[in-house]
């Protein structure tokens, strides 16, 4: 086919992306009375926190809400984003797409945050249905006092489900 171009290959963000990518308001996808915090830790294959990871979230959002958050992990591997829970989209349960970048990842990995307290919607979600039953729990954010907790395990027994987009 004429005119078709091959894509530029991915490379790692490396250890020093924080000089260029994060910014002060970056972790806030949405704020206001309905906003909640989704936080967690990013862990490697030995369960050690990853202090140089970047979590990006994206959800469809009504006008006036950015819907995107970019949050680096801290020295303890923790990240936190401020957002609102998205609505269900047709048959799809409420979810937030996540890209994770870090030194040692040559290409982003993609996962989805679902909400553990949306059991009926989750049971009908076509994407969750593709995930082996014993791994679905890795995609469920657990309710907390101020929002939800969602840890990301890059490797290991509790490895998070990652998707090919």
């Amino acid at each position: 086919m004429s005119g078709r171009l091959e894509v530029t290959p991915s490379q790692t963000v490396g250890p020093f992306f924080s000089i260029g990518l994060p910014w002060d308001g970056g972790p806030i996808a949405a704020d206001g009375p309905d906003a909640l915090t989704i936080s967690g830790v990013v862990l490697d294959g030995e369960g050690a926190p990853i202090p140089d990871a970047l979590v990006e979230s994206w959800q469809t959002a009504p006008a006036g809400i950015r819907g995107f958050a970019r949050a680096p992990t801290d020295d303890a591997g923790r990240y936190a984003i401020r957002t609102v829970k998205p609505p269900a989209l047709g048959a799809e349960a409420p979810h937030i797409d996540v890209s994770l970048f870090c030194r040692g990842l040559l290409h982003r990995v993609v996962t989805r945050i679902y909400f553990a307290d949306e059991q009926a919607a989750n049971a009908a979600d076509p994407t969750l249905a593709r995930v082996p039953g014993d791994r679905r729990e890795t995609l469920l954010a657990a309710p907390t006092d101020d929002g939800y907790r969602f840890d990301i395990h890059l490797q290991g027994d509790d490895e998070t489900v990652f998707f090919a987009v």
């Binding site: 870090c102 030194r103 490797q155 990652f162």
Partner: peptide, 10 residues
């Protein structure tokens, strides 16, 4: 220690 070992889900 930073790459997923499980296959990616479509």
């Amino acid at each position: 220690l930073r790459h997923p070992r499980q296959p990616l889900v479509y």
